[in-house]
Nucleic acid binder design. Sequence first.
DNA 1: CGCATATCAGTAGGACTGAAATCA
DNA 2: CTGATTTCAGTCGTACTGATATGC
Lengths: 155, 155
Amino acid sequence: MPLVKPEMTARRLVSQPSRLLTSMAVVASRLVAEGLAEIGARRYHYALLSTLAEFGPSSQAALGRRTGIDRSDIVSTMSELEEARFIERLSDQSDRRRNVITITAKGETRLEELDGQLRQIQHSLLAPLTPAERQQLVKMLLKLCVHHAGNGGSN
Amino acid sequence: MPLVKPEMTARRLVSQPSRLLTSMAVVASRLVAEGLAEIGARRYHYALLSTLAEFGPSSQAALGRRTGIDRSDIVSTMSELEEARFIERLSDQSDRRRNVITITAKGETRLEELDGQLRQIQHSLLAPLTPAERQQLVKMLLKLCVHHAGNGGSN
DNA sequence: CGCATATCAGTAGGACTGAAATCA
DNA sequence: CTGATTTCAGTCGTACTGATATGC
C-alpha cells in the first residue's frame, strides 16, 4: 500500500500504532527490495548469507529456523545462491537427508557488498531521526520482537 | 514470515532497522487481521469507515487517495460494506461518473465496535512498552511517515 | 514405526496493472 | 480531445500448504 500523508489521513487511522508500523514497513521493504535489486540481490540472500557467515555451515532446515524463511523458499533461494557460487551445497555424509550449506569466499565478498548497500538503505530510511532517536527506535522494536517471539506469538 | 527469537538471529540481520520494522509489522498485521476477523471485519473496513466518519461523504476515488487503498480494492470492499448496510453507495447527481459513499448509522455503530477491538489489539501489540515508550514510538514512526510521504517516496 | 529433511507443485490473500465504459 | 471515475479481469511476488521421496 502506498504511503499517504498523515495530515490527510483520518485521525483514528493515523494514530493506530499498528498502521504506523505497517506503513513504515512497506516503505522499508520497498527501499530494501529496490536497493538490493540494483545489485541483483534479494532480502533472502542477505538473511541467508549473513546467517551462514555467523553460524557456519548449516542444513537448509536449520537456516529456515534461524531466519524464519520457509523451507520451501530456502530451496529456491539456495539454488540461486549456488548458481552464483555464493554458497556450496553438499549432501551431508553423516546424515544423508541433509544438505550442508557453506558460504564461499565469493559469498563472503558478496555479503560485504550487501552490507554496504544496506547501510545506505537504513540511512535513507531513518533520515529524519537523530542518532539518539534511531537507537531508541531500534531498542523499542527489539523489545517488541523479544516479547512477541517469546511464545508462538500467542499474545 | 514468522518471527524468530532475536537471540538466535545473526547479529547483522537482527540489528537492521528495516528488518525489525518489517518483523513487527508482520506481528501487527496478524494481530489486526485475526482480531478483526473475530468480528467479521477486515483492515480496509476500518480504514474506510473511519475516513467516511471523519471527512463525510466521498467518491470512491477520493477514499482511495485518502487511505492509500487501490481503486480496484475499494470497489470490492465497498460492495461488502454496502451489503452489510454500513455504507450507502449512490451515484452522484452532479458528476455522474462518481459514486457518493455515505456512512450509515449502522456503520457508525460498527465503527465504534471496530475501535474497541483495535484498542485491545494495540494494547497487546505494545504490551512490553511503558506508556512513555509507546508515545515515543508513535512519535518517531509518525516522523518517518511524514518524511517518506512528503515526496513520492523518493528518498 | 514415528520424525526430520529436501524438493516440487500449487494455493491464498494482498497490492497492483490494463483496459473498457462512462462522463466532465 | 484530455483527463477522471468506476468496474472487471488478470498479474505478480510473497508466505505458506500438501504431498512425495528419502533417510534417521
